[in-house]
Design a protein around this nucleic acid. Structure first.
Lengths: 216, 216
DNA sequence: CAACTATTCTATAGATCACTAGATTAATAG
DNA sequence: CTATTAATCTAGTGATCTATAGAATAGTTG
């Protein structure tokens, strides 16, 4: 490193930048944005070896992004505060906007239903307000129990096909899963639309809805 | 890398994260936040070899954070749009807030005058509005000419000592230099306060003022 | 206290990145 | 066309980071 008077400050700033420089860590942050979680669960959901997961979590903790809490033999990690969630949102929006190919990648992965055609939190509030939408939570029953969009009905994605008859024909169906890049909800939307009903994704999933609820 | 369906998306996100992972690049972004600049100038101001600077700038361009423009033999770089400036502000605030020692580092470097005791853009507007402050721009005459806080008088820091008699005794003096971590303005504030006058720094310097002017 | 599980710590090989230096391209001036 | 200046491209080295595996620690259970 060269030396100008402000160097040590940028050195510190870069520590936070480094925390955002590895795909796995961004993934872990997104998972944690859905709520507190054990190392074991994070490793499973992130498709990453346990030891590795633990190591990355420690880096995130060193950067001040997450906190850890011991409960019996298990270690629970969580985002340090709401500010982290807000920053993550800004970072993701910013990155998507920066790189055209990232947005394309998202759309290729989710299909149009998850990208451009998605409902914003604001639109959702409006639709629900005048009873023009049925909201479907595709996450697990456990996740639903921990918190969900008011008025949503719980239809875990595994049960969707057998319970699809429960969905109305005459009202727009807004489906959501965990996070912004989750494939579950766009897939469900395609499935439901194929029956002739009208379904759309909630942009950003539960995580984003929860984040924006605060800021209006 | 392990493989979960969203992996390529996080891969792309991490490209932006990587751009923020090196101290020099953060420094370059801060310099560019002050306006368009040539590679040569950036290398000089960043205290970095030219070749190295060029390489880092290309990485920033690949991440979509800056644009380049050729003019004769010189290459000019600039932030790609205002969104980058806003994001940088959020990133710096976020990082300072994350790491207590970063805030301490800033204060150790700038002295209290640059940190806690500084005037916010909002306060400045209020002070200027009722004529309760004289604003002093410590940057070079060229930088002042390119844009400055309305009503500010230009006193390049080199000339401060000889022109210090121009400053009033009965009004608060608000001084600012380029960016958030610039040492010029806190140093000037100490100098002016030593004469018995009352001076304070503008928090975040010109860059931050310009950024916040838009958002109110 | 001993056996057991979950997690962290330590060490190492492999990949990636920053810095340096030499060669190359692009525009300008004589 | 040649010389000059600015910037980029290419290649090589050292440092840093990731992934992986073995050892150690903290807590639980019998």
């Amino acid at each position: 490193m060269t030396d100008f008077p402000e160097a040590p400050i940028y050195e510190h700033l870069a520590r936070v930048g480094k925390a955002l420089a590895a795909p796995v860590r961004l993934r872990l942050l997104d998972l944690l944005d859905q709520g507190e979680c054990t190392v074991e669960e994070l490793a499973r959901r992130g498709g990453l070896p346990l030891k590795n997961t633990s190591s990355h979590l420690q880096q995130l903790r060193a950067a001040g992004l997450v906190t850890s809490r011991r409960e019996g033999t298990r270690m629970h990690y969580a985002l340090r505060d709401d500010e982290v969630s807000r920053f993550l949102g800004h970072f993701q929006d910013f990155a998507e906007q920066r790189m055209g190919d990232l947005r394309e990648e998202v759309e290729r992965h989710l299909g149009q239903e998850g990208g451009s055609g998605a409902v914003t939190a604001e639109e959702l509030a409006e639709l629900v307000g005048r009873g023009a939408a049925v909201v479907v939570d595709l996450r697990s029953a456990r996740e639903f129990a921990e918190g969900h969009v008011p008025g949503a009905i719980s239809v875990p994605s595994r049960e969707l096909e057998e319970r699809i008859a429960e969905l109305p024909w005459d009202t727009t169906i807004v489906a959501y899963c965990q996070g912004p890049y989750c494939v579950v909800s766009p897939r469900a939307v395609r499935l439901v639309n194929a029956t002739g009903r009208r379904a759309r994704s909630l942009r950003g999933g539960y995580v984003r809805w929860k984040r924006e609820r605060g800021t209006g």
